[in-house]
């Protein structure tokens, strides 16, 4: 009897520990190696690189520039907020801001892409929207005029 009890306690403790560990993995911020990235003028480039990193990590360099260009195009468009911050933090505008991907440190490719987009390179020729055709379910987004498709994103106006 006593032995079984001890076993039960041991199992309970083990499960609790495992559970805490898993929870920590999900909730806790795992420590990542950070490197000095360089110097940017104005935090626009950095903010843009963070949103590119959150929205288009794993896309080709061109796909990342294109996402950055959409944000720059929105800043220039009168129907959107007129700063990089305003566009990026418009409530609900970007998944990466809602789910917290934005708050990771960017990779160096994203910074390069952000710089190109801010300096005027625009593979989308004025696109204001992009979406993933595999997951986008909004009917409205499909009514946009498609300009081109780069990687897994469709760019449109």
């Amino acid at each position: 009897m006593v032995k079984t009890r001890i076993r039960v306690i041991a199992v309970v403790v083990a499960v609790t520990l495992l559970f805490t560990f898993i929870l920590n993995q999900i909730v806790g911020t795992s420590e990542k190696a950070l490197a000095r990235g360089g110097t940017v003028s104005s935090n626009d480039v950095y903010v843009l690189s963070k949103i590119i990193n959150g929205e288009a990590r794993g896309e080709s360099f061109l796909g990342q520039v294109a996402v950055g260009a959409v944000i720059v195009n929105r800043v220039k468009n009168p129907n959107f907020p007129n700063s990089v911050y305003g566009v990026v933090f418009e409530p609900g505008a970007f998944d990466a801001v809602s789910d917290g991907q934005y708050y990771r440190k960017p990779l160096s490719a994203s910074v390069k892409a952000a710089r190109a987009a801010i300096s005027g390179w625009d593979p989308t020729y004025g696109a204001l929207y992009y979406w993933n055709p595999a997951t986008a379910t909004s009917r409205w987004i499909w009514s946009r005029k498609i300009i081109n498709r780069i990687g897994k994103h469709v760019f449109g106006r």
Partner: peptide, 12 residues
């Protein structure tokens, strides 16, 4: 006027 510059961190 060039915007103010600052250093930033990257993920490796």
């Amino acid at each position: 006027t060039p915007p103010p510059k600052f250093d930033f961190l990257l993920e490796e």
